[in-house]
Amino acid sequence: MVTGTAGRAQAAGGAEADTKLEAELRRLAGTVPDPELPVLTLEELGVIRGVRLLGPGSVEVRLTPTYTGCPAIEAMTSDIEQVLHDHGMTTVSVVKVLAPAWSTDDISAEGRRKLAEFGIAPPRHHAADEPVPLTLSVRCPHCGSTETELLSRFSSTACKALRRCVSCREPFDHFKEL
C-alpha cells in the first residue's frame, strides 16, 4: 500500500516535472527569432504547434510553415535545434506539420504591433470565405494614412505584398492575409 502510493506520487511528480520541462522547452523554442523577420519570435508568428518530450533528453517540436515553399523553415529548424541542445536536450527532432494550415490570424497582437513598428503593415483579420481580401484599407506604417495603394501582390518574401502610401509616397511591405 505504502509503496504503491509512493510509486504513484513519484510517477505523478515525474509527469508534472515533464510537463514543466515541456512548457519550458516550448517557451525556449518560441523565443527563436524569425530568420526573415527578426523582430518577430516564432511564438508571435504562431508557427510552433507543440513540444513533446519523447524520453530523457529527447524532444519533438512540431512546426508549421507560413507558406508551403517558405525557405526560412530550414533556418528555423536549425535555430530551434540549437536552442534546445543548449538547454541540455541531446536529441531534437523538428517535425513539419501542414494541417491545419497556418493563417495570418495566428500572428499574436504583440507580433502585429512589432511588425507595424518595423515598417511592415500587419495583416488584416480574415473575412470568412474571402481568399484574397482587397477591399479594406491598409494603413501606412510610416505616416498612419489609410490612403494606400497596391503595387504588387508579391514582394520581398512569399508572405508580403508591396504597397505605396498615397499621402507620404513611401513604398512599404504589407504582410498579406493568408
Binding site: E74, A75, T77, S78, D86, T91, S93, V94, K96, L98
Partner: peptide, 17 residues
C-alpha cells in the same frame, strides 16, 4: 535528427512520410 548541435540548416522531417 542528430544528437550533436549542427551549424548548417537542417531540413525538418515531414509528418507525412
Amino acid at each position: 535528427m542528430t544528437a550533436t548541435p549542427t551549424t548548417h540548416a537542417t531540413a525538418p522531417t515531414t509528418s507525412a512520410t
